[in-house]
């Protein structure tokens, strides 16, 4: 009766988000057509957003949908359309012998190691923050996150602003078509 000691809605939400996340993730790595892989990535991102909402991260769930599903995946799709769908990638061909087996082995060892450590030690417990703003006392998530970002993490916030500007300029420079001055275009 272990499962019934948690509220049924939270279990249902967890199962739904896990199903979305895992289906989408498997789709990303197995589908051959990059457009389908990008659509399955959206499914995973929605699942992660559901998991965020279930854990009181409302603002991040909204940002997840807007920035990831709305901007990043659209950027992926835009590049796929721009380049033409590259169907030539043979998923079956392995230039490196035993690549898939080795990758599967490495991933399984890593994940089982992490899960084993989680099961045997007490990672999950810790001292709840005393100084920081409490999530538990019902204050609004956006207020707390905003206060935190604009006070404690102000320097990191400014640095990411600079990073974004640099990234935009770099992307424009990379994607710009080189034109010699002789060409009359």
């Amino acid at each position: 009766m272990l499962a019934l000691s948690y509220a049924l809605p939270s279990i249902i939400v967890f199962v739904a988000s896990a199903a979305l996340i895992l289906t989408g993730a498997v789709g990303v790595i197995t589908l051959k057509n990059p457009v389908h892989a990008a659509l399955s990535l959206i499914m995973t991102l929605f699942g992660v957003a559901v998991a965020f909402i279930a854990q009181q991260a409302d603002f991040l769930a909204a940002v997840q949908i807007i920035v990831y599903a709305g901007a990043i995946v659209v950027l992926f799709l835009f590049v796929i359309m721009f380049l033409g769908v590259d169907r030539r990638e043979g998923v079956e061909v392995q230039p490196l012998v035993g690549q898939k087996t080795l990758a599967l082995f490495g991933v399984v060892v890593t994940i089982s190691g992490v899960v084993f450590m989680m099961a045997r030690s007490h990672w999950v417990t810790g001292i709840p923050s005393l100084s920081g703003s409490k999530l538990a006392n019902g204050a609004h998530n956006v207020n707390q996150l905003g206060t935190s970002v604009f006070t404690t993490y102000l320097f990191a916030f400014e640095a990411t602003a600079a990073l974004l500007i640099i990234a935009v300029v770099g992307a424009v420079l990379l994607a710009r078509r080189e034109r010699s001055t002789g060409e009359a275009q």
Partner: peptide
């Protein structure tokens, strides 16, 4: 986000 919820600390979400 999970640790942020567990430890009631907004730092994880930031």
């Amino acid at each position: 986000v999970t640790f942020s919820r567990t430890l009631s600390d907004i730092g994880g979400q930031a």
